[in-house]
Design a protein around this nucleic acid. Structure first.
Lengths: 352, 352
DNA sequence: GTAAATAACGCAAACCTTTGCGTTCGAATT
DNA sequence: AATTCGAACGCAAAGGTTTGCGTTATTTAC
């Protein structure tokens, strides 16, 4: 690996000082137009590229932000990452993406690594295992901006971007109730996650609104994953008084439940209705297509970065942005013959 | 953002020189055990973290590699990224992931950005639009190691990791032929992509092997994407002599075709068989589950990084690694009643 | 024609770490 | 007792860039 050309190289070749070359490339007023021209020409010819380490060393701002996700290879996260990336690139920032693999220990390590990297800020979505957030507190000491998205923590101390968890779950549950379902199974993840707590709240609220008795057996809060969805749904379908509908908190849970229903020989939506937090692009893969609460991942990513950037630029305001989910009713939640779909597919517009 | 503590800060507080502190933390033999202890204690107390910019400036190796993918939010790429990441972290490397958005111009920019970043090496999967690879040649001038994966270019000059394109397509096609299909539609992407060229070759070879006449109308090579899959399949099903099976080169194409078949009111696999390069986790989402050629993304990622690391460490050998696909026969390609499945589900083990 | 102003450029410090080499001092060898 | 050796540490350069300030030389104003 040969040494890249530096300002010094250019300066020597032109017989001028390094400062002049530096200023010329920065289009400073302190250097003549003729000189600027000469410098720029040589720089292009020699393929000069400023050394980012030297600049970062001086300014202590590498123009990099860190992103911590529980998992990279899930559409939901990768699409958010993609949106963050786009917003970041537009502002001249690069991103370093790290995965906690849904593990507390790794997440801890991720935070440390990003600090060592001297990132200018961190966007984080916590792992399923994380119920204690003290490993994020170091960032406050170091004055490194932190914004949580989706699964959040330390909400008194840091900004975050979340979805309308309570309302979306309430809406989804109400939708099932209005279509005549009585025994709605709630299939979620670990209880300490804000998204689980809040959505369960919305689910229960809808039941109360419609005066449906609450049955704790229908609420499953274990882990998020395809197998878990399969197991939970299987169990709820095997009850003496089985479920006639499911609200699933993630795509993997929903498809797991989907398979469980099919394997049981039951029909969707005739025997069992299904709705879940499912990504737009996959909801239509299956037959019947899945009714879904869809996250506006592009908005989530964009907004998260915007909040972070604001903090990087010095703001200390703690903000909480809510990106609404969009309910799209497809085949899995409404019986064709029934025709008693009270509510038109409600698409809440994204804020801002 | 307050200034992080430096070696100098520690040195002053201890009343020793910077070099001693540096060596103490590096556990050098040139400093006494007592001093080491004192330094380490203070370092921990003051939360000293080595400045990566200073180190990189000196050594010109930031321990970062760049990854260029056509798209982040696709399971195939994100799972490869995930595997690369894991391998990289294990070796103390971080990754910067950039997306070309399937665009030639952006890809060009990505390469430039990564060079400016002084990454130690680049792993790349080219965009659909890319047929000219000259923008990668800069890397050779700069002596930056480059390894292509999946969609490759410059194969005489750079190492790459690919799948067994010809063989897998040949096997998949043969599988359809052995199950009685005669009019197999080939739904691929742009012709200039190696993966399309080679797989088409495998497809044609299988037809020849089985003495089936080749019909150019059944070969569609346009773009990769859900809508394109839908269109292509719709068209082939509307032919006077329509397709009775499809081989799709990507998951999005396959699910697009899947929907087209359903919308036409045809049954899978009774009327039309379907097989494609589909990710393991999604193949089972639909009913019937999809027969698939599955990429071993973990292997692809891991092997790619290993090849790159070898080059970073100085090797100039140009290597080409082939990671075989795995054929898993599910419901979409074999009629239940037929029972003439000649070939057992063949799972080729991953190499190494 | 002298004083003041300005344009155009150079010097050098600073950012932080690593490392070859030089220095000092005490202990071991002859 | 004089010499040698090694342990333990300091000095200083190097890596590339930015920037405040100092230095020229030329132009402008009176």
């Amino acid at each position: 690996m040969k040494r890249p050309v530096s300002l010094k190289d250019l300066a020597e070749e032109l017989g001028v000082s390094i400062s002049t070359v530096s200023r010329a490339l920065k289009n400073s007023g302190e250097v003549s137009d003729a000189m600027k021209e000469k410098v720029r020409k040589l720089a292009k010819e020699k393929k000069y590229r400023p050394n980012p380490f030297a600049v970062s060393l001086l300014k202590n701002s590498p123009r990099i932000i860190g992103i911590i996700v529980p998992d990279i290879a899930t559409y939901y996260y990768s699409s958010i990452i993609s949106a963050i990336n786009q917003a970041a690139v537009k502002e001249g920032y690069s991103t370093i993406i790290v995965s906690s693999d849904e593990t507390y220990e790794i997440e801890k390590q991720c935070v440390e690594n990003l600090i060592n990297f001297r990132v200018e800020g961190i966007l984080a979505c916590v792992s399923q295992q994380t119920s204690d957030f003290s490993h994020f507190e170091v960032l406050f000491d170091q004055n490194i901006p932190l914004v949580f998205f989706d699964r959040v923590g330390l909400s008194e101390k840091s900004s975050c971007v979340i979805t309308d968890n309570v309302e979306s779950a309430q809406t989804a549950t109400a939708h099932l109730l209005e279509n005549g379902r009585k025994r709605i199974g709630f299939i979620g993840g670990a209880n300490h996650l804000n998204i689980v707590k809040l959505r369960k709240h919305g689910y229960l609220q809808a039941l109360r609104d419609y005066k449906i008795p609450i049955d704790k057996d229908l609420v499953v809060c274990k882990e998020i994953g395809y197998e878990l969805g399969y197991e939970a749904a299987s169990r709820l379908l095997a009850l003496a008084n089985p479920s006639d509908a499911f609200l699933c908190l993630s795509e993997s849970l929903a498809f797991g439940a989907f398979k469980a229903i099919r394997d049981k020989g039951l029909r969707i939506p005739d025997d069992v209705a299904l709705i879940g937090y499912i990504d737009e692009i996959h909801a239509d893969y299956v037959s019947p297509p899945l009714s879904a609460m869809t996250h506006q991942t592009a908005q989530i990513g964009k907004t998260s970065f915007k909040l972070l950037l604001k903090q990087i630029k010095g703001s200390t305001e703690i903000e909480k942005k809510i990106i609404p989910c969009i309910l799209t009713v497809r085949g899995s939640s409404v019986k064709k013959a029934a025709g008693n779909q009270l509510e038109a597919p409600k698409t809440t517009p994204a804020q801002e």
